Amino acid sequence: MEREAYTHPAPPGRNSFNSGFIHGIVMERNSFILLVLLILLVLTAFRDIFSKGEPSFPDVSENDSVVYLAYSETCPHCHTLIRYIQSKQSSVKVMSTTQGADFKTTLDGYGVQWGFGVPMIFAIVDGQLLGVEGFPDESQDIDGYFMGKDFERRLCDSRGGEPQLKEGDYKFCKLPNGFFLGNKNAVDYVLSVCESTQCVSI
């Protein structure tokens, strides 16, 4: 007697379930690929900002006072800071570079945590590091402060900073990472220190 083959009938909706499940996998895979490509794009841009270009280091003697500047060619804040420093006509030599990694080891050695934010300037005087991170562009500058003195003072407090006062008047902010929050007063302070006391080269 011929035995009838037994087959399990497909459960209702099985084909539609498989189709939806496969579609979900494809969508997740596409989203993952898109995320990976986005991360690679960001990393490439980050690398281009901090690995291209030769440092612009003027000739310095052992008696010169030196300030270091890290910037990006595409950063409007950076160019505003550069123009401001140039307008001061200071005797301090400015060593500038777009290669942020050039300075990272030095900053780490002084316990200053830098996340490659630009513009950034620093100087070394009497064994201590003075650094300024950030700078308002022309549209953000109000009387030399980032969006005005009151706004910047509140920003300093919100970031856990230490206000730097002169005769009770707020001038700039020392951030928890060891940098000064960038404004004209902070830059003036670093330049004035380096004009009166030699800021050494690294």
Score class of each variant (00 low, 15 high):
residue 33 I to G: 03
residue 33 I to S: 10
residue 35 L to I: 07
residue 40 L to E: 08
residue 40 L to I: 07
residue 42 V to N: 03
residue 44 T to F: 09
residue 44 T to G: 11
residue 44 T to L: 09
residue 46 F to M: 06
residue 46 F to P: 00
residue 47 R to Q: 11
residue 48 D to Q: 06
residue 49 I to P: 03
residue 50 F to C: 04
residue 52 K to Y: 13
residue 57 F to P: 00
residue 57 F to E: 09
residue 60 V to P: 02
residue 62 E to F: 09
residue 63 N to C: 05
residue 64 D to C: 02
residue 64 D to W: 02
residue 64 D to H: 01
residue 67 V to D: 03
residue 67 V to C: 02
residue 68 Y to K: 05
residue 69 L to R: 04
residue 69 L to M: 08
residue 69 L to S: 05
residue 76 P to G: 08
residue 77 H to K: 05
residue 77 H to V: 05
residue 77 H to W: 12
residue 78 C to L: 10
residue 81 L to C: 06
residue 81 L to A: 07
residue 82 I to G: 04
residue 83 R to T: 13
residue 87 S to M: 04
residue 88 K to D: 07
residue 89 Q to N: 13
residue 90 S to Q: 01
residue 90 S to A: 04
residue 91 S to Q: 04
residue 91 S to K: 03
residue 92 V to C: 01
residue 92 V to T: 00
residue 93 K to S: 11
residue 95 M to K: 00
residue 97 T to C: 03
residue 98 T to D: 03
residue 98 T to A: 06
residue 98 T to G: 07
residue 99 Q to Y: 03
residue 100 G to M: 02
residue 102 D to A: 07
residue 107 L to G: 04
residue 107 L to M: 13
residue 108 D to Y: 06
residue 109 G to R: 06
residue 109 G to A: 06
residue 109 G to V: 14
residue 111 G to R: 04
residue 114 W to K: 06
residue 114 W to N: 12
residue 115 G to R: 10
residue 117 G to Q: 12
residue 118 V to N: 11
residue 118 V to S: 12
residue 118 V to R: 10
residue 119 P to I: 06
residue 120 M to N: 12
residue 121 I to Q: 11
residue 122 F to V: 07
